[in-house]
Each structure stands twice: as C-alpha cells, then as structure tokens.
C-alpha cells in the first residue's frame, strides 16, 4: 500500500467504487486525489453522466415517440412468428 495514487490507479478505483464499497483507506485517498486533480474529478463526472443517461432511459423511456406504432401488418407478422416458434422453443 502506498498513499499517493496516480491518475491511472484512481481511475480504476473510481470505477470500482461504482460497483462495490472500497476499503476505507482507499476511499479516503481516492477522495483526496479527486480534490486535487481536476482531470480525475472530470473523469468521475463523466462516468456518472454515462450512468445517469443509461439509467434514465431505463426508468422513463420518455423520449419515445407515442405517435409511432407497429403497423397492423407488422403485428400480424409478429403474431404469426410467435405462434410458429412457440412449439419449437418449449
């Protein structure tokens, strides 16, 4: 263990901290580095933006265009398709 992490190490820790709780000392040293290094701080913001956008889509789907819908033909095709595959997948 060393107490000064470089940017590469911090970038790994920032990512890992999004998936599990880091050990206490790592967390402290990571935060310290983030306070001093604006590029790593930006990197963390970027990862959080990516996460927020990914989850946002999951939660709301608001961007979807309600005026769009499957055509009746399309629906028939899909129903037919499902019927044909029901037997061979069960």
């Amino acid at each position: 263990m060393h107490w000064m992490y470089n940017c590469k190490e911090v970038s790994e820790m920032v990512s890992e901290s999004m998936d599990r709780a880091l050990p206490f000392y790592q967390r402290v040293l990571m935060r310290l580095h983030l306070l001093m290094c604006k590029y790593c701080a930006r990197y963390r913001e970027q990862l959080e933006t990516i996460r927020a956008a990914s989850r946002y889509e999951q939660l709301h789907g608001k961007e979807l265009d309600d005026s769009q819908a499957l055509s009746n033909d399309g629906k028939e095709r899909l129903k037919e398709f499902l019927k044909n595959h029901l037997t061979d997948t069960h």
């Binding site: 265009d65 769009q68 819908a69 499957l70 629906k75 899909l78 499902l82 019927k83």
Partner: peptide, 13 residues
Amino acid sequence: ESWVDNYGDFLYR
C-alpha cells in the same frame, strides 16, 4: 400470444 398486443408498440418505439 399476448406479447404483441401488450408490449409490441412499446418495444417498437
């Protein structure tokens, strides 16, 4: 058999 009616449009959009 209900998938197309229940989820079809949403997935399509």
